[in-house]
Design a binder for these strands. Sequence first.
DNA 1: CCTTGATCGTCAAAGGATTGACCATCTGAC
DNA 2: GTCAGATGGTCAATCCTTTGACGATCAAGG
Lengths: 176, 176
Amino acid sequence: MTDRPADLDYLSFVDYAIGKTQAELPAVDPVAMRLGLTLHRLAGALVYDWESTVHRPRGWSWGGFRVLFVLWLAGPLESRHAARLAGMSRAAVSALVKTLERDSLVTRAPVPRDRRAVQLALTEAGHAAVAEAYQEHNLREQAWAASLTPAERTVLIGLLEKLTTGPAAAAAQRLT
Amino acid sequence: MTDRPADLDYLSFVDYAIGKTQAELPAVDPVAMRLGLTLHRLAGALVYDWESTVHRPRGWSWGGFRVLFVLWLAGPLESRHAARLAGMSRAAVSALVKTLERDSLVTRAPVPRDRRAVQLALTEAGHAAVAEAYQEHNLREQAWAASLTPAERTVLIGLLEKLTTGPAAAAAQRLT
DNA sequence: CCTTGATCGTCAAAGGATTGACCATCTGAC
DNA sequence: GTCAGATGGTCAATCCTTTGACGATCAAGG
């Protein structure tokens, strides 16, 4: 609480915010607040790092990479499955694939048993491009993970997965 | 690796992805990969929960809430400071404030010592609205945090802050 | 069959966010 | 003082994403 607001930066803001909130809203849980703020800000910094160092230089948006990534890993997929795995709407996949197809990274093919559906698959060039890009993406992940000891990484992953699989996560269904 | 791709969902995808990647790209660090994927997906679920249950029903975008939030906590702020604390560009703040001012939640005032700058402040109604909204926001944070024991929460926060203040975070400067 | 309801992909519209350009203004060196 | 360079807020252009609507298609019950 000693800092003047104008001197705060993106990170020290968390401490300042919790102090101020405690004074005005005693019902707020400061631990949950710190957890939410820290997690959100860390994830934002991570995505910004990935996007600016790895994906934008390749001419891909963050959403475009996510579509390529799920196709790379989960093989040919119908469009709706790609949307679910990438965590975006069907319309977003449709729009992104238009660009990816133009760039010869993805192909669209009809599905025999369902004439409404479209099967998305990586081209050979798309496969190679994703593999190369993800390798660099993972180098950035390694650089972040290097701040922790191996034991700390294991603990952190365990706690994040506990949150991810907990009841609050089940209640918050994304893009149903 | 036993699941068929079409049966995967947003969360079980992580295990499947790591197995596949290990087979194709041995240079990838699976622990860093799991950390990145889990962190990103958890944060996405959190923001989606906040936005859909607390902020959209109030007619606020996620970005609009972030501007109100930093003004609520860090008092009257010049526009560029609000942008830095909220983690967005100056142009985004300018656009969002246009709406917030129209809704009588924020005021724009000239700064005596610098005629380029604009001082942003919450109105009385804005202050009350943010306080009420954040209280509900924090209830959602508490619901998520309840998946962990108090000791686990402390450990998790400590590890997240270690990542946030580590060298990788320092190298990835957002919106310089 | 056929009809009713659900689902798939796409489109249009709207809102958000970034970048880059711009003008006004400030700061510091001369 | 004055001038060059840096900075602040805004605007225009662009891109991405969501929602809602739509036509086409599937599935199940009579």
